[in-house]
Computed example of a mutant assay.
Amino acid sequence: MTTELVSEKIIETDHLTKIYQNRQIALNDVTLTIEKGWILGLLGPNGAGKTTFLRLVLGLHRPTAGTVRVFGQPMTPNAAMLRRRIGYIPTNPKFPPGMTPITYLDYIARLFGLPSSIRKPRLASLIRAVDLLRHSGEPIANFSVGMNARLAVAASLINKPDLLIWDEPTHGLDIEARRGMLELIKTLADDKTIILSSHNLSDVDEVCNHAAVLSQGQLIFSDSLQELKGRIRKNHYELDLDGEQKAITKVMTQLKTIGDFKLVNLRGRRLELRLSDDASNTGLLGQLFQMLHDSKVSLISIRSVGQQTEQAFLDLVEKEESRGFIRLYDQSEAA
């Protein structure tokens, strides 16, 4: 007998809405499911509702309408047992300046009710893991942005959570500190479910396997990261070529006679192409490859211009904003 693998729903929101002071609609009718093992990149422009969504999931705010379930249970401001299973890092975390990493982590562990026999070795292990051992007895007031970020990571892991919710964890970090944070996320992803809210789309591209995109409080995309990339406009390419310059120039001249090539630009042996939005990229690139073959020009490399996740995100938000009035009209007709 075979058994089917049943997915475990970690977070479920149903028509989740938050309106502040009857004036600001921060989140509008968001229905989203996040399953066990996902590393979800939560994306959206400033003011899109990302932080509001995270605070509702954590039970720090009450929804105006709709519901949030975490680990299969309703999340409310009084659901302390659910929050014990969550590790949270807010944007730009702040700590009591007079404390040290040891005293702060010990304090957080006490709040979780951990006995001394558990919390002492655990905080020592975390301080070592986030590379703060040399600074474990120093006042937090003297810490850099990167050191604060590492302490925040340790604090979010002190309760051995099943779910991590990190809001802009690489914000303000230098290149080395950011690299260390991303490597840590990859390690934690082996046995944690993670929500990573980030403006840095290259971070999301590197560590996430799913994405949710908010725009003006509405959820406009939720699926695998690969599916998000699949929505990219595949119309801008760069090709590195090898062959006689005269032959390469001849190919460029031929391409300019084809109407669906909106941009054909040659710099040495690098050819830049932009196709019309509704053109078949496979058909046009097939014509190009045949021309290169006939002209005895070799293709060294071809690549889409721009970072894929970033371009797909920008395309998605742009299309959503452009159809805002159309969507409103469709909804009024349906009503």
Results as ranks from 00 to 15, higher is better:
Thr2Ile: 09
Leu5Asp: 12
Ser7Met: 14
Ser7Phe: 13
Glu8Cys: 10
Glu8Leu: 14
Glu8Gly: 14
Ile10Met: 13
Ile10Lys: 02
Ile11Gly: 01
Thr13Gly: 09
Leu16Glu: 03
Ile19Val: 13
Tyr20Arg: 01
Asn22Leu: 08
Gln24Asp: 03
Gln24Ala: 09
Ile25Pro: 01
Val30Ser: 00
Leu32His: 01
Thr33Met: 08
Thr33Tyr: 00
Ile34Asn: 00
Ile39Asn: 00
Ile39Lys: 01
Asn46Lys: 04
Gly49Pro: 03
Leu54Thr: 00
Arg55Phe: 09
Val57Gly: 05
His61Tyr: 15
Arg62Gly: 02
Pro63His: 07
Thr67Met: 01
Val68Ile: 10
Val70Gln: 00
Phe71Trp: 10
Pro77Arg: 00
Arg83His: 00
Arg84Asn: 10
Arg84Asp: 06
Arg85Val: 10
Ile86His: 03
Thr91Val: 11
Asn92Ile: 11
Pro96Asn: 03
Pro96Cys: 08
Pro97Trp: 14
Thr100Tyr: 05
Asp106Met: 10
Tyr107Pro: 09
Ile108Glu: 01
Ala109Gly: 06
Leu111Arg: 06
Ser116Leu: 13
Lys120Phe: 11
Arg122Pro: 08
Leu123Asn: 12
Ala124Ile: 15
Arg128Val: 15
Ala129His: 14
Leu132Tyr: 11
Leu132Arg: 08
Leu133His: 15
Arg134His: 15
Arg134Pro: 07
Ser136Pro: 03
Glu138Thr: 10
Val145His: 09
Gly146Asp: 05
Met147Asp: 06
Ala152Thr: 06
Ala152Gln: 00
Asp162Asn: 06
Ile165Lys: 02
Asp167Cys: 06
Glu168Ala: 07
Glu168His: 03
Pro169Tyr: 00
His171Glu: 10
Leu173Tyr: 07
Asp174Cys: 07
Ile175Thr: 12
Leu184Pro: 04
Thr187Met: 15
Asp191Ala: 14
Lys192His: 11
Thr193Leu: 12
Ile194Pro: 00
Ile195Phe: 02
Ile195Tyr: 01
Leu196Cys: 07
Leu201Cys: 04
Asp205Thr: 06
Val207Cys: 06
Asn209Trp: 05
His210Ser: 09
Leu214Ala: 03
Gln216Trp: 04
Gly217Arg: 07
Gln218Ala: 13
Leu219Ala: 07
Leu219Glu: 09
Leu219Asp: 03
Leu219Trp: 04
Ile220Asn: 03
Phe221Lys: 07
Leu225Met: 11
Leu225Glu: 03
Lys229Asn: 12
Arg231Met: 15
Ile232Met: 07
Ile232Cys: 06
Lys234Glu: 12
Lys234Gln: 14
Tyr237Pro: 11
Asp240Gly: 10
Gly243Cys: 07
Glu244Ser: 15
Thr249Trp: 05
Lys250Leu: 12
Lys250Ala: 15
Thr253Gln: 13
Gln254Tyr: 05
Lys256Arg: 14
Thr257Gly: 05
Gly259Ala: 09
Phe261Asp: 06
Leu263Asp: 05
Val264His: 01
Asn265Lys: 07
Gly268Pro: 11
Leu271Gly: 05
Leu273His: 08
Leu275His: 03
Ser276Gln: 12
Asp278Thr: 12
Ala279Phe: 05
Asn281Met: 13
Asn281His: 14
Gln290Val: 14
Leu292Ala: 01
His293Tyr: 13
Asp294His: 13
Ser298Tyr: 15
Ser301Leu: 10
Ser304Lys: 11
Gln311Glu: 10
Leu314Arg: 14
Glu318Cys: 04
Gly324Leu: 14
Glu333Val: 13
